[in-house]
Design a protein around this nucleic acid. Sequence first.
RNA 1: GGCGCGUUCGUCUAGAGGCCCAGGACGCCGCCCUUUCAAGGCGGAGAUCGGGGGUUCGAAUCCCCCACGCGCUACCA
Length: 492
Amino acid sequence: MKPVRTRYAPSPTGDPHIGNIRAALFSWAFARANGGQFLLRIEDTDQARLVETSVPAIMESLTWLGIDWDEGPGVGGPHGPYYQSQRLPLYQKTALSLIDQGKAYRCFCTAERLDQMRKAQAEAHRAPGYDGLCRDIPRAESDRRANSERFVVRFKMKQEGQTILHDLVRGDIVFENALQDDFVALKSDGFPTYHLGVVVDDTEMEISHTIRGDEWISSAPKHIQLYEALGWEAPVWVHLPLILGPDKKKLSKRSGDVSTLDYRQNGYLAEAMVNFLAFLGWSLDDHTSIVTLEDLKQHFDFARVVPNPAIFDAERLNFLNGHYIRAMSDERWVETVSEWCEQRLPVSVPRPLDFGLIFAIAPLLRERIARLDEIAPMVAFLFSEEPMDYPSEALSEKLGGDTALAVRVLDAALAELDPLDEAEWAKDRIEAAIRAIEAPLAMKLRKFVTVLYVAAEGHAHGIPLFESMALLGRERSLERLRRARAKAQHSL
RNA sequence: GGCGCGUUCGUCUAGAGGCCCAGGACGCCGCCCUUUCAAGGCGGAGAUCGGGGGUUCGAAUCCCCCACGCGCUACCA
């Protein structure tokens, strides 16, 4: 059996989207699980859609997730170059040999004629496809015209019989050859189309399993016949189910798809992303739902990949992200909190940040957030001298809008806290002081404490109050309570 | 229109003839814990396995038809 070699072959037309990256993950996992190799190849054959920043983004996305490649951009390898734009002679040579064998031909049809042809086909309700006008141009005439006219090279698809695709995920799929048309293999700019490109490169790079998305199933007959015509051994075919947006359409910008790197930007962890993507089409067994890159590396198998498309569910990603946040080592968590504070806290906060503070808030944050981008908003109040800006209604929101009560709560808290001096200003003393106002107020702490949360932190969904006030210090804490009191009083 | 793929709780999935009047996870609901919010623990609701025919003693699992969804139908990938 051939050694396992798989590849991720994106076209650099933008940042890699998650559907794409999932194919990379599965290809990588399969290679690793079988002691094989994984390579990266850039299919930059569409000059018009080329986006400069794509390749770095692709590499960055893979690296972020922990997917490494044995050959390809950045690492080189014996089958380079790994950019299709740098392998043009290879495709041209292949196309020419196909012409020589009568298995392909030059097509001189103009875009206008092709348009007209399709329009006529549509009107006549006939299947669209190239009508074969140039199929039988004699070789001598073809050679002569090639000197002065633009042309593409079309591959002669068989017109009878069937082409069978043996797919690892869904079994055999039969296509009627009569329904296939002669596709363009080499474009007039000398670049290959995807069809010629994959076949030539997967062969030359000794790829054992061609793994790609579902949308390629319908063009698989082209590839299969190309392999046959060239006398090359075809790889094992694997077509992965599509990832759909909540609207059940193929994931796109519109349906909420964002580039893989955007997820990092939005506070997702690579582990969560990997775990999430892994279960879009694959499962480990009948009960496991938490899975790491290492598990994938050990157990990934196409036998457990389902053929049906999956809908992207952001709720699940959030859950997984929270899970991995809680699973991090303390050191890494402190480091992460530090980074996200450094990056996301307002510029008005002086840098470098107080590391003691970061260290103190990290454990408080951990159980409370699902995404890293929630960190800065939650703790910003600790870093600024000024109280947070919040609507005065926020103070009494949980009190049913009873602003007068909010004022009384604030007064009571102030009365108990003010006597504490600088040295006594610690979590336990603050807690005792605030609990002491339960009696005079004749209310449970939990009923009125949100007023103090808003006063101190600017919102009612923050990290624990007593610790926060201790970290804030006596002066800033009292000042904020007074400000809140004035604010409430004013809106009475 | 043609061709192709797909169809199990809202979602991701387990299930390859009896273990399934369908299991796990997210989400949802309730209770517990609790200084807010979470997290955590416990429990619950939620799928006549798209519909209809077969085959079989027995079908989510095999066959056929239908419906619906999606993909492809470019000198884009």
